[in-house]
């Protein structure tokens, strides 16, 4: 079976700044891949390119059978298959938790009332937030908001989930509860691409880790590679000099 995500020699510039400079890697179905690297190494841009929030300049990108690098790709179908969770949660502040999660199934998947309710409640149960159905996002802690955002994505029943530094805005305690939910998802077989600064999480949960530097995949390996960096840059990044 072919990989669920294929990234081949992808380039992207912002003006004169080369952000992605020939990124290539594959992800198999059910794999959890953590992407680490310094700020500005291109990891967020790479992640956002996968569901075409950023358009790449050159290279080939195929996700769940959709050729993302083709300008005529079906964006609606692509984004139904690929969920994304953001650093700043981006919940809809005018909707309750239940409405936030139900919006996708009801409007984008055009499901009926009963099925929408069943799916949203199941998604909220997976992030342990069933008791917060009728509150507004601003009444929740950051960790709870991020878990709602994960549930909102789950309710679309995606094949792949992207996580863009989802714990960077949270304190260590709240980070723990969000990472716990993500670990459950990983164990449930979800294909996940996770941009993160949580090294312990990357080591423990990811099947492989990608270290990005200067817009390229600098090193890729299993969790153990952080203890035995092959390149000077990764050694500096993990603080082993």
């Amino acid at each position: 079976m072919s990989p669920i995500i294929e990234i081949n020699d992808v380039h992207k510039n912002f003006g004169h700044l080369k952000v992605l400079n020939g990124v290539s890697f594959d992800i198999e179905r059910g794999e959890v891949v953590a992407v680490i690297g310094r700020s500005g190494s291109g990891k967020s841009t790479m992640l956002r390119s996968v569901n075409r929030l950023e358009k790449i300049d050159r290279g080939r990108l195929v996700v769940c059978g959709h050729v993302v690098s083709d300008p005529s790709v079906d964006l609606h179908q692509l984004r139904r298959d690929v969920g994304i969770v953001f650093q700043s949660f981006n919940l809809f502040p005018h909707l309750t938790v239940r409405e936030n999660v139900a919006l996708g199934p009801r409007v984008a998947r055009k499901l009926g009332r009963a099925e929408t309710a069943k799916i949203s409640e199941a998604a909220l149960a997976r992030v342990n937030l069933l008791e917060k159905l009728d509150v507004y996002p601003e009444q929740l802690s950051g960790g709870q908001q991020q878990r709602v955002a994960i549930a909102r994505s789950l309710a679309m029943e995606p094949q792949v989930m992207l996580f863009d530094e989802v714990t960077s805005a949270l304190d260590p305690y709240l980070t723990g509860e969000v990472l716990g939910v993500m670990e459950d998802l990983a164990r449930g077989g979800m294909t996940m691409l996770v941009v993160t600064h949580e090294m312990e999480f990357a080591k423990r949960v990811a099947n492989s880790i990608i270290f990005m530097n200067e817009g390229r995949v600098w090193e890729r390996g299993p969790g153990g590679m952080l203890d035995d960096p092959q390149t000077l840059e990764l050694r500096q990044f993990v603080g082993k000099t």
Binding site: N51, L75, R79, I84, A108
Partner: peptide, 8 residues
């Protein structure tokens, strides 16, 4: 962006 990714 969040609404676009949902996708609406």
């Amino acid at each position: 962006e969040a609404a676009e990714c949902l996708p609406l």
